[in-house]
Write a protein that binds this DNA or RNA. Structure first.
Lengths: 152, 152
DNA sequence: ACAGCGAGGTTCGAATTTGAACAACCGCGT
DNA sequence: ACGCGGTTGTTCAAATTCGAACCTCGCTGT
């Protein structure tokens, strides 16, 4: 506990900016998705990842890692989506324990309807607010931040 | 409902980087604070804001806005901190409805003990990962993102 | 003075989240 | 073959979050 290297002005500004932007953006998108598509952000992300995967299906554990959420949390949300017919579970043929989350037609359809509004919101709150240079630095810098934490 | 403007590669990289970094950083800090100080991140933030305020006290609504949380959420967390003697409530003299959240000595003390480890973690996951130029862009760009959402 | 509009906080119920505990199972090494 | 450590997904209780309803009260216009 000998070296409290505090943050200087620039570091503090970056950190606080990051914190505030994270919270506000998350809050805004949560609301937008709820209003326009009846989905929570975690649920929307599940659909997005499934839609991007081959055959629209991903193993539960793998999906939980991509979504950066707990396994139990994913079990719950997939359950919710399953009740609404947007996702379905499929047993893994090669591993009895394994379970695939599979995007249904209804799920894919809802995603198609929800995506435009969501992208528009993402543009409004972040992408269209910044210029190309800023976007490039964001991608580079935050990409590295994420990558490091992914390993740890 | 005309054709939506999808995100190009750079925009997508920036957005995904932002999302992943937000989640992973939040998750990491949450864990760090819980382990080393027995505080959740929202709780830590409450202490920080109070410590930075004149007389270590802030009105509930004002505090909720700064923390970017709901009023009811703040009521709950202040309740938790109060039970632990880290914060105390004080009636507002000029407005009977008003309530100040006040940092206690114990709260200030715990914050002093928790801060070094927290700052170290912030450095480890974000600040020390980036160079000065990147920090400057982050501060500028995300500052603007936050500012816009604050108004809306 | 006073009615009405809104702000300030809390309370309430419903929805989520997390980690720990569990049960079942895979597959490597001997 | 067989034992065991490590995985997989779910269940469970506890903690947290949110928004809506609510009550009290401050402020403004008349």
């Amino acid at each position: 506990m000998n070296e409290p290297r505090w943050l200087d002005e620039l570091e503090m500004a970056a950190w606080q900016g990051f914190l505030e932007a994270s919270n506000r953006v998350a809050r805004r998108l949560e609301q937008q998705l709820k209003d326009e598509a009846g989905l929570s952000h975690p649920q929307y992300e599940i659909l997005v990842h499934l839609a991007a995967a081959p055959d629209g299906e991903i193993r539960m554990t793998e999906l939980a890692e991509r979504l950066i959420t707990s396994k139990s949390g994913l079990t719950y949300q997939v359950g919710q989506l399953e009740r609404r017919g947007l996702v379905r579970r499929r047993a893994c043929p090669t591993d009895v324990r394994g379970v695939f989350a599979v995007l249904t037609d209804a799920g894919r359809e809802l995603l198609h309807r929800a995506a435009p509004g969501h992208v528009a919101a993402v543009r409004e709150v972040l992408v269209d607010v910044l210029d190309r240079d800023q976007l490039a630095v964001l991608a580079e810098a935050l990409g590295e931040v994420g990558r490091r934490l992914r390993r740890a």
